[in-house]
Nucleic acid binder design. Structure first.
Length: 489
RNA sequence: GCCCCUAUCGUCUAGUGGCCCAGGACUCGGGAUUCUCAUUCCCGCAACAGCGGUUCGAGUCCGCUUGGGGGUACCA
């Protein structure tokens, strides 16, 4: 199987069906395909599997491409980047499928089936009742001759085209991450290749397209593993070389159940809305089932691409742990450069209706510097920055109990007067002022900062007080303390 | 029912027969730094699903059991 990669440049694909949002499981499949292509210097293409006309969703298609781009997984070929193997929408390739199915029909590897939905249901019900080991289509139409079938179709009868699966023997294949797998052919049924509406099924379209588009490796979800012998048989019928198979384990929720929107965030869009960086999501998802072979965990996309190999993908399905995702987001925020973070903060502030047009950039830079190590989500930046621009109108309830209690007014007055006497309102000077004051009046510094902090910011947590005061400025700091003074005792 | 995949701390994982009385990370607990919070840094808790083989030796190989997941569509 490694012969393929040795003789042909790697070509892999992400082939979603535009029926709903991009699930994190799907995202990870895309990530691995992208990583592998980039690591091997190959091509990553996007193919849209829109052969189910009932479930097709235009919005889903649009969102899917937006989310992929947001994650940084730009495809080399596909919608919007036409390559040599298009069209990349299966719905635009119907003539190709019809051309290819004719080959199978001519070779006697496929046949027309006239069975109705009702008959199929009856057959299935009967099989369930009798507990036979073999289920599926009973091959009722398998021996109808080509001539008879075509005559019936000419006469107006509707038919599907099925694959003639060998009745005996074993179909075997190698999976890159699971090893050798074999299925008894007698357990496989004659799957439908072309549906009654003329559209191909997934099985047929994906095999034809993967071959025609030069796909060397198929990295796809675990749920396809039991269809793989059928695909393998189709390749054989066509006389084509199958790709290297690589079936990825699923991603489960914290409790080992299915990750679903009902139980929380499950799609790429959900996590974006929650305030995660795309770099975080890609990093975390990549590590859910893969590792670089050393202890590195927080990695850039570039680093992961460099270390990525199929051999290091795990066969076991993994649970999604949002706690670790959160931690990792903090790590990635630390890695972002300040200018980028400032942009995010400005956007968030603007969304809150705060006018920044007269703000000196240097002041914004200083705020970002203070907030950066405290942010876990991108929107934290703007949320924590508000009081630098707007005086608090309410004060944290617990903070009021703790810091505005008996004696606080006296302390605040002392602090206020000390601050008022400072001409050079800078961090080290303010700090010295607090320490001198503490010594002078016999308090610990810690006892001096609670009330002023709450008065100025409205909250009890935040950047260093001296830094914060410098940024807000002497005049405004004094004003805010005065405003809060009546609330103290 | 039948078929297939899977199984190391609560979670993500390292481990490819001796280097493992099992290592790292998240979480959690404790501590240091400190004006609060966060960051950072130390320390700690915590696992080879069970049972049988193979072997001088098994987390690592094989079998069975159990648990988990998937498939069994004219959906992907």
């Amino acid at each position: 199987m490694s012969e393929i990669s040795a003789t042909r440049p790697v070509r892999v694909r992400f082939a979603p069906s535009p029926t709903g949002y991009l699930h994190v499981g799907g995202a990870r499949t895309a990530i691995y395909n992208y990583f592998f292509a980039k690591h091997m210097g190959g091509t990553f293409y996007l193919r849209i599997e829109d052969t189910d006309r009932k479930r097709y969703n235009e919005t889903a298609l649009h969102d899917l491409m937006r989310d992929l781009k947001w994650l940084g997984l730009q495809w080399d070929e596909g919608p919007g980047c036409e390559g040599d193997c298009g069209p990349y929408f299966q719905s635009e390739r119907l003539d190709i499928y019809h051309r290819e199915i004719k080959k199978l029909l001519d070779a006697g590897c496929a046949y027309y089936c006239f069975c109705t939905e009702e008959r199929l249901q009856e057959v299935r019900a009967e099989q369930e009742k009798s507990h036979v080991p073999v289920t599926g289509y009973d091959r009722h139409c398998r021996n109808i001759s080509r001539e008879e079938a075509e005559a019936r179709i000419a006469a107006g009868e509707k038919a599907v085209i099925r694959f003639k699966v060998p009745e005996t023997g074993v179909t075997e294949f190698d999976d890159m991450i699971r090893g050798h797998i074999s299925y008894q052919n007698e357990l496989l049924d004659d799957l439908v290749l072309i549906k009654r509406d003329g559209y191909p099924t997934y099985h047929f379209a994906s095999v034809v397209d993967d071959h025609l588009m030069g796909t060397t490796h198929v990295l796809r979800g675990d749920e396809w593993i039991s269809s793989t012998p059928k695909h393998e048989l189709l390749y054989k019928a066509f006389g084509w070389q199958p790709p290297v198979w690589c079936h990825l384990p699923v991603i489960l929720d914290k409790n080992g159940g299915k990750l679903s929107k009902r139980k929380g965030a499950a799609s790429v869009g959900d996590f974006r809305d929650l305030g995660y960086l795309p770099e975080t999501l890609v990093n975390y998802l990549a590590l859910l089932g893969w590792n670089p072979g050393d202890d590195r965990e927080v990695m850039t996309i570039k680093e992961m691409v460099e270390s990525f190999t199929l051999e290091r993908i795990n066969p076991k399905s993994a649970s999604f742990d949002e706690k670790k995702l959160q931690w990792m987001n903090g790590q990635h925020i630390h890695m972002c450069d300040d200018a980028f973070l400032k942009g995010i903060m400005k956007e968030g502030l603007a969304a809150k209706g705060i006018d920044l047009s007269n703000e000196p950039e240097a002041r914004l830079d200083e705020i970002v510097k203070q907030l950066k190590p405290r942010a876990h989500f991108v929107q934290d930046l703007a949320e924590m920055a508000v009081y630098f621009f707007v005086a608090p109108t309410t004060y944290d309830e617990k903070g009021v109990k703790k810091h505005f209690g008996e004696g606080s007014k006296e302390v605040a007055t002392l602090v206020r007067d000390m601050l008022a006497s400072i001409d050079d309102f800078k961090t080290p000077v303010i700090e010295k002022g607090f320490y001198d004051l503490a010594e002078r009046c016999g308090h610990k510094v810690g006892e001096l900062v609670g009330a002023p902090r709450l008065a100025v910011s409205g909250v009890t947590a935040g950047p260093g007080l001296w830094e914060m005061f410098e940024i807000i400025g002497k005049e405004e700091v004094l004003r805010r303390i005065d405003v809060a003074m009546p609330l103290m005792k």
